[in-house]
């Protein structure tokens, strides 16, 4: 490689003409930290980014579209007769269970996609910008509310198609959907945290499955608790998924807001309080 010394050219005639950068003024105008309003605004911009991504990659919606339909039909016809005598009388027990299950599975995708996303170059830039550290995590989660809602609505829709008639009426069903979406959103912080600590998207998937299966199946989602051995009943009764399922049953089937709603909300808030800070911390540590 021969390196000829060329005289440095003078600034070009078409060089930018806008005012020059003044370092002192720039330093003086810096702010020590983000306000809550900044954080909210950054989160919404990140949510916008996530919805653009969904629009450009519609295949991301397949799980949300297919799973509620497939699982509702499968569980109803496979377990209906064995557990409740016939499909019709199983539906009021099962639909809220499937609701919890689909919303939880959808949360898992939140963590997996975050992990994939974090490996991309654009996250380097996010880290180098003075934006609220929680925004790159919370933004996609806000956008994912769309996915949880879609999954929840489809579960009820499919149930109604195969003969489920919720006695709680429209309000009861809407209440159950809202509760499931909120709980799903709070649990998504657990998967987001896994997303920030795991080494690859596949690892997130694997670890999340380990968490997801016990949570959904060791609950009252699909079977009456009294058929389980005593030691298992103890776990099932404290499992937050059981509370969500019971609360959703009370809402959708009877139109009543039971104490289970309170327990579910409490569990959701506790999960957020623990896992949101953990997620932000491990996200910031990541190189």
């Amino acid at each position: 490689m021969s390196t000829a010394l060329i005289d440095r050219p003078a600034p070009r005639a078409d060089a930018p003409t806008h005012p020059t950068v003044d370092p002192d003024a720039a330093v003086a105008s810096t702010r020590p930290r983000n306000t809550l309003r900044d954080a909210a605004s950054h989160t919404m911009t990140m949510a916008w980014r996530a919805t653009m991504k969904m629009r450009r990659n519609p295949e991301q919606f397949f799980d949300v579209l297919i799973q509620p339909i497939l699982f509702t039909v499968m569980f109803a016809y496979v377990f209906g007769g064995a557990i409740s005598g016939d499909v019709q009388s199983y539906l009021p027990i099962m639909i809220p269970g499937i609701l919890a299950q689909t919303v939880l599975t959808t949360c898992m995708a939140t963590g997996v996609q975050l992990r994939e996303d974090m490996d991309k170059g654009v996250f380097d830039r996010f880290r180098s910008l003075p934006i609220a550290r929680i925004a790159p995590l919370a933004g996609p989660m806000v956008a994912d509310l769309l996915r949880y809602t879609t999954a929840a609505v489809l579960t009820f829709g499919m149930g109604i198609v195969i003969g489920y008639r919720p006695d709680g009426g429209v309000l009861g069903v809407l209440g159950a959907i809202l509760l499931a979406v909120f709980t799903g959103w709070s649990l998504a912080w657990v998967f987001t945290w896994i997303g920030t600590i795991a080494r690859s998207a596949q690892a997130v998937q694997g670890m999340s499955m380990m968490l997801l299966f016990p949570l959904t199946f060791l609950s009252n989602a699909f079977v009456p608790v009294k058929t389980l051995p005593g030691w298992l009943q103890d776990f099932v009764n404290v499992n937050p998924v059981s509370h969500l399922v019971s609360a959703a049953r009370d809402l959708a089937n009877h139109g009543t807001v039971s104490g289970e709603v309170g327990w579910t909300l409490l569990a959701a808030v506790v999960v957020i309080a623990i896992f949101a800070p953990l997620s932000v911390r491990s996200y910031m540590r990541r190189v």
């Binding site: 330093v27 105008s29 810096t30 702010r31 930290r33 983000n34 170059g121 830039r125 180098s128 003075p130």
Partner: peptide
Amino acid sequence: PHRIRQLVGVTG
């Protein structure tokens, strides 16, 4: 660090 991020543009 928050002030620094307002002062530096990074291109990797």
